[in-house]
Amino acid sequence: MGLNIDYEHLNQELKDTLQKARPAPPSGFVMAKLDEAIGWARKYSIFQYPFVTACCGMEFMSVAVSHYDIDRFGAGMPRFTPRQADVLFIVGTINHKQAPILKRVYEQMCEPKWVIAFGACASSGGFYDNYTTVRGADRIIPVDIYIPGCPPRPEAVLDGLIMLQAQIQQEGYMNKRRALRKQGFKELHGQH
């Protein structure tokens, strides 16, 4: 499909990075195995919340239905309440009028939660640079995976999803989220 990505290498790289960032587990063997089991279960049971605002939504729909079949990756169940969702898909342009809504949706999601910025606008604002557009959803909430494209090819979306799965598998129980949240609050409020 034109994508030639060495996932083995990618996984190893992510593993090394996370190993470096993560403090040593308190009791070694048992804790590490539990982490892996939880990660494996989580990465194949993604309930997604599609926050669709623009044309990228059409591409998201094509990924979600049978032709590309996102259900192969255990992510086939969209939930239209954030309280039941694990992954927030930000699909399309985010403007300043919507920003508080997006933030509230994110805050209503239960931990553990992840965020995917789908397409150029959600990742960086795209070519919009004016009074109305937020230059990237990561200005409002932390984002885990950025999928490029205007709009992205379905293959690129699945690629991003696989990357997220690798991240879910590899990350320690709550460690990443705690770190992200701390960092986010620090940037927002200066302390805590």
Partner: peptide, 17 residues
């Protein structure tokens, strides 16, 4: 009206950017 002036409703992460 300034071309790139925005008026955010929520505090933005990384304001230095």
């Amino acid at each position: 009206y300034p071309l790139k002036k925005s008026q955010p409703r929520v505090p933005l992460l990384s304001p230095e950017r």
